[in-house]
Computed example of a mutant assay.
Amino acid sequence: MKKILLALLLAAAGILYAEQPLYSIPVLGDLHYDRADCHDMEWVTANMGKDLRQIRNYIGVTETNTPELFRQVEANAASRSEPVPFVIQMGDFTEGLCGSRELQGKLFRHALDAVKGTFRRPFFLVRGNHDVTGPGSWEAGDDVLLPYLRETLNDPRASYNYAVERGEDVFLFFEAMRPDLAWLKRELPKHSGRRHIFLVTHYPILPYNYRAHWGLLSKRREQEPERQELLKLLEKNNVMILSAHLHMLSLVDRKTADGTTVQMSVSSVINKRNSRPARVSEGVTAYTPELAAEREAANPNLEWRKALIAANRPFATRFYKAEFDGYAVLQVYADRVDMQFYNLSGAEPVLTMRLK
């Protein structure tokens, strides 16, 4: 009897071990970290008056909810039995629109101080459009963000395009603001044969909503040859895309004869701590060009938006889109990759989705 009980216990332990992720990675979408003392309001009013309302909103969100977001993400990571080696943030780290190189640099430093004061593990990021918007913002990134990344990576020559390896997997952080396809062409062959390849970038690459043309290499029709080259490159390497920018939770994929690309998008601007997925569109039957007209049916780019979705539709086998404020946790297993989505009102995920 003792032998039978021992065998059962060992079997149960084996099942539990098999279901244990190899590691997990917290994933943050847009943050728009902001502070009132980091804006030249005269410049904002004169040049970006239409953005005053959103600036005030992001300042409020940063004061009220961002510290709790960071605290909960770190607490979630610390509570896990599997390793949690680092945190990912996918651009629009800050709101930008500061008005000068000095003020943007100050905002970057405050945001990094909040990160360093909370997280007990490396924090890797890419830049978003807001991180490079406003006078001197590009230079401020080189003054503050680039040295931070080089220190974190322990590589004095690191750029905004960089690779982070984890066991049999690799995370490629890709600068969407000045996309360098030549770098990606050089980097991907180095990682052929990897179990999982993740591309971390700000702009989505696969279109999925009324802002379909806000994706990487999607804004103008003349960029289409480059975008098609990028898609083929990702398909051949079965790359999983982690993106942000559109402030939505979304999953969409693309399966062709060359391979499969799947894209997950996350938003971490916390307007509601108890956010739940809302205005959900789900299933490939919902993935139609009419998504491009959901909110701006009279937009001059409507036909291009529709064309982008229509071009991907024949290759899509999965689709999900919802409004949701929160963060995600990427769970990497030997045979699959899942993503859990959390709001700030509880310790349990509100949704879990299979990425691969």
Rank of each mutant, 00 (worst) to 15 (best):
Y160G: 02
E82R: 04
L28D: 02
R211W: 13
L184T: 04
R121F: 06
Y148K: 04
R166D: 01
F123T: 11
I309S: 11
V170H: 08
G136H: 10
S137R: 06
T288Q: 02
S159Q: 06
V280A: 05
D92K: 10
Y287M: 01
L10I: 14
I88W: 15
R318E: 13
R121S: 08
G128E: 07
D335V: 03
L153H: 04
T94S: 10
A307L: 01
S275I: 02
Y342P: 01
L125Y: 13
R194H: 08
L330S: 07
L22F: 07
D113S: 10
A292F: 04
A7L: 15
N161P: 05
S275P: 10
Y320F: 15
H213P: 00
Y23L: 01
N57H: 07
L188P: 13
R178K: 05
N312W: 00
G91R: 02
Y342W: 12
R186H: 07
P189D: 07
P204T: 11
T64Y: 05
G91M: 04
E296K: 13
T260H: 09
Q72P: 01
W214G: 09
M248I: 11
H110S: 14
R336G: 05
G283P: 14
A18V: 12
T62Y: 11
E74W: 12
P156L: 12
I197T: 15
A13R: 09
M48Y: 14
N76A: 12
F173H: 06
L112Y: 08
A347N: 10
K2P: 00
D335G: 09
E296G: 08
E323T: 15
M339R: 09
A292G: 12
A140R: 05
E175V: 00
P289E: 03
Y23M: 04
G167R: 13
T352H: 03
F124Y: 15
I59N: 10
K272R: 15
L9I: 09
A286H: 08
R295E: 13
N129M: 10
D335T: 05
S100R: 09
G136R: 11
A347G: 11
G91T: 04
R71E: 06
G14Q: 09
Q223F: 04
Y327H: 08
V284F: 02
S250Y: 14
W304Y: 04
N57E: 10
